[in-house]
């Protein structure tokens, strides 16, 4: 079941496009924003609401990197693993994060606080290496800065 808040937001998106179906990505984003991730049940609710099959909605949901079909932690760490950050040492950051959080890429900490994901280029290559936590971008990050950065998130 979609909540009234979700329905209101989805209806707004539908009003901007010529066919209901065209709002599916926005609808998935809205549900994920409310619930943290898109469960089978949520996916089914979106499909029913837009008059699409679950398979059709899932094919879209699983295509995009940042629609989560598995539960994630309260905060998402996106560590850039692309070329400029490779040259500038993202692997050192990854090694430090693995030690500090005790998870690898794709993992969620046992306290459900963080999920760590690799991410293609964050578009700040002149300030590499870079990572994002939720909406916050961090650039020129050194492994020794990580502790302080992570401490901001509770």
């Amino acid at each position: 079941m979609l909540t009234t808040t979700e329905i209101k937001a989805i209806e707004h998106e539908i009003s901007l496009v010529p066919h209901k179906k065209a709002a599916v990505i926005e609808a998935l984003k809205i549900v994920q924003q409310q619930r943290g991730w898109v469960s089978d049940e949520s996916l089914g609710a979106v499909a029913d609401y837009l008059g699409m099959s679950q398979a059709e909605v899932d094919s879209v949901a699983t295509f995009y990197n940042l629609i989560f079909r598995k539960p994630v932690g309260r905060h998402i760490i996106l560590l850039c693993d692309s070329i400029s950050c490779y040259v500038m040492g993202y692997r050192n950051l990854y090694a430090a994060l693995q030690v500090q959080l005790n998870i690898k890429f794709g993992g969620t900490t046992t306290d459900q606080l963080f999920t760590l994901l690799p991410n293609p280029c964050l578009g700040c290559c002149d300030r590499a290496p870079a990572l994002m936590i939720d909406d916050d971008l961090y650039t020129n990050v050194e492994p020794e800065n990580l502790k302080e950065i992570l401490a901001k998130y509770t």
Partner: peptide, 11 residues
């Protein structure tokens, strides 16, 4: 949709 690695001009 600036997403090609190494590209940061449109930002």
């Amino acid at each position: 949709d600036e997403m090609e690695p190494g590209t940061f001009k449109d930002r």
